[in-house]
Amino acid sequence: MAVLPSEGESPAPARGALVLADLPARRGRGWLHSLDISIPAVLLIALAFTCFVWPYLYKIPSPVGGGILTGSLPVGSPGHLLGTTVVGNDIMSRLIYGGRISIEIMFAVQGIGLVVGSLIGVTAAMMQGVAETIAMRILDVIIAFPAIILVVVIVLGLGASEATLIWALAVVMIPIFARVSRAGAVTIREQTYIVAAELSGSKRWRIALRHVLPNILMSLLTFAVLGAGIVVILEATVSFFGYGIPPPGPSWGNMIAVGAQTMSTRPVLLLVPSVVLLVTVIALNTLGEGMRRRWGTLR
């Protein structure tokens, strides 16, 4: 086989400039300089601010309990910036309160998923052997199950509310977190510094807590951001089908469901919540990818 003499040299780069995505993580500069992290981060902070702080600064109409008198107002009506629904609820405030629920659910589910999932995953990896195999098989079963059906069944069983939705979505996310953290822990446990720690006399739980966990933490956080997009989508989907946040409670999912019924006459009712939902998920995914590119996945 012909081997080029200049083996050490890297091959000529493809023509054209490289896109942002191809640049290796520039560790020298602060993370705020990476546009793919800072832009979505700012966007998400703005969204959180609008949903949680804005209603306290400026009085906004109630998202529920609107009267038929103010029903079906068009976009740009005085006092109702984005108009009202058929039953007279302000769309803007429904978006804000729906967003609040989405963000709350997202944080709660990813928080539970991160803690419980990494606990399961790292424990499984540290146990090794049969226990590890059995634990991972059980998680496989839950992951193999269609997520939507799982959430619907649990919500039906417990009764629909924000809290039950959080637990149902956590059941979906915990095995995924467990699998990711176990995969990470398996690569870490093969590292020489784990052998060194064992030789130093550190107990296994201490190695798991002080060596394994810190070294997979950044990739777990990255995954939590990427997975947050999935949670927001799942929540919206389940609410769209009427199994999630019970109407008239505001949720982007059931707003879209309502909008879908009048899409030929008032498409704005469908488009506005759809766009808000889409932008949120895009921001989460872009942020997640930016984080992954910068802090890397596990080696």
């Binding site: 054209g16 490289l18 896109v19 989907t237 759809s274 995914n285």
Partner: peptide, 28 residues
């Protein structure tokens, strides 16, 4: 041609598509 016009547009569009919930895409 990484970084070319086709690539840039595709990268933006693909991010949009992979982020869109299926039920929203269906309705749209």
């Amino acid at each position: 041609r990484p970084g070319g016009i086709v690539d840039r547009i595709t990268m933006i569009l693909s991010m949009g598509f992979l982020s869109i919930p299926q039920f929203v895409l269906g309705l749209l």
